[in-house]
């Protein structure tokens, strides 16, 4: 089953996302701030990372940037969930390499679909790679 890391500093949202994603049976790991997020990122492998932007210790953009600059984690799908709605921040997130940006309030169904899509893409890509080999 796919491993998903959810990084979110708001307790309510963290629990809610866990419940919603849990329905689809993913293997969920959570982090409630930037520091914990980095620890968990270093200590495990993930297929998708769902991250908030404004958190203690480190902001979500750092998480995105770190994932994208790491060879081994380049293929991890990244979804940013944030209440920040200004254009600059959103384009910044995409430029750094986020795959999706969901603005709060989010639709639970949308989050699920996006995760499924990212996972499907990833699988087809890795299949391509293996075929080429």
């Amino acid at each position: 089953m796919a491993n998903i890391l959810v990084i979110e500093d708001d307790d309510i949202m963290l629990k809610a996302i866990r419940n919603i994603l849990g329905k689809d049976g993913y293997n969920l790991i959570t982090a409630k701030d930037g520091k914990e997020a980095f620890e968990k990122l270093d200590g495990g492998e993930y297929d998708v990372v769902v991250t908030d932007l404004m958190m203690p210790y480190a902001n979500g953009l750092e998480v995105v940037s770190r994932l994208r600059s790491d060879e081994t984690k380049r293929n991890v799908g990244i979804i940013v969930i944030s209440s920040v709605g200004n254009e600059e921040t959103i384009t910044e997130a995409f430029r750094l390499g986020a795959d999706d940006y969901l603005k709060k309030p989010i639709m639970a169904g949308e989050l699920l679909i996006r995760i499924r899509k990212l996972l499907a893409n990833k699988n087809s890509k890795s299949q391509l790679v293996t075929k080429k080999k």
Binding site: G34, M54, M55, P56, Y57, A58, N59, V84, N86, E88, T89
Partner: peptide
């Protein structure tokens, strides 16, 4: 500095 960079503010 890291903590200054994590203010809850958009701009």
């Amino acid at each position: 500095v890291r903590s200054l960079l994590t203010f809850n503010y958009p701009k």
